[in-house]
Amino acid sequence: MKRKYIIYLALSVSFILSISFSFYYYTQALKYGQQIDGGKDNQSAIPAYHFALIGEEMDHDYWRLVGEGGKDTEEKYDVFVEYTGPRRSNPEEQLELLDIAIKSKVDGIIVQALNDNFLPMINKAVNEGIPVITIDTDAPDSRRSTYIGTDNYEAGRLAGKTLVEDTNGEATVGIVTGSFDNAHHQLRVQGFREMVKQEEGIKIVAIEESNITRVTAEEKTHQMLKEFPEIDALYGTSALDGVGMAQAMESLHLKNDEMYLIAFDILPENVELMEQGIIDVLIEQKPYEMGYHSIELMLDLMKDKPVKDTYYTDVNVVRVQDLIKKRDGL
């Protein structure tokens, strides 16, 4: 008797589940049909252009601003901007996303070209009729149409000039760079070296690579400061290098007035460290403007309008007093 009851119960449950699933798929089918019908009546709602914007790292405030700039153009122009990128910095994954964009036959591609491996893929896109704009990091030897972003060599020179002025030409410097391989970090180091080498009182005694992570930046800075205790100035070429360097200083109980620290980007953590007197200077880039204007340039290409070879966005030196003035609306 008990066995019959269990069988009856199981059959009842199966029947109820089958009815439920049937109802669910029926309602989904209705919705899908309505979407198709609606699409037929609203062809004008489909954007005229589909652009792919491929950044370095989705999980990073700097690239979020680039993405926001690109996506915000959808409110003004008849475009769909597909913003994508690796969660963490990964050139190989970026190349895969670039390949997918080409195979998807998007109307245009905006991509950061981190190294020489991007050149053949950019050329492939252009050969297949898809214009390419490089952003943040250029590939001038490729067939890209134009570049928009920071002049990274000049940004490095600006950082070097600022350090020279602030230290009166007397400093022992340690450098933490985001990547030895990435072109824009190489240029920021080259420009910095070019500027400070003119000063006999400034010596660069160490340079380490952070792999664009705050943890590695802290580890490498800690190691650097233990090996070269005479270092009294630090230069970081990526936004996260500044945070990592500051954490290393804290772990070694170094006081703010014992170390001059210059880094990149006006991001919340860097601003907080500057307000605490830990970071002395930030080199400000314009990531939102890069993203927004890259789409406008791509639209010019769609309309066969001429574009320049490069479009450099502004770079500024920011100190704590500048933050205060901005906050107070002065």
Rank of each mutant, 00 (worst) to 15 (best):
R3G: 05
R3M: 11
L17I: 10
Y26N: 08
T27Y: 12
T27R: 14
Q28Y: 15
N42K: 13
S44W: 06
A48E: 10
A48T: 09
A48L: 08
M58A: 09
D61I: 07
G67H: 01
E68A: 11
K71N: 06
K76W: 08
K76C: 01
Y77C: 02
T84M: 14
P91K: 08
L97M: 13
A101I: 01
S104H: 11
N115V: 01
F118R: 00
L119I: 12
I122W: 12
I122P: 09
N123Q: 01
D136Y: 13
D138S: 03
P140G: 04
D141H: 11
D141C: 00
S142H: 07
N152E: 04
A155F: 12
K161Y: 10
L163H: 11
E165V: 00
M195E: 15
M195N: 08
G201W: 13
I207Q: 15
I207R: 13
N211Q: 12
R214N: 07
F228C: 01
I231F: 04
Y235L: 00
S238R: 05
G244I: 03
S251G: 01
L252G: 02
L261A: 05
L267Y: 10
L273Y: 04
Y288V: 02
L299C: 06
M302Y: 14
K303M: 06
Y312M: 05
V315T: 12
V317D: 05
Q321F: 05
K325N: 06
K326D: 12
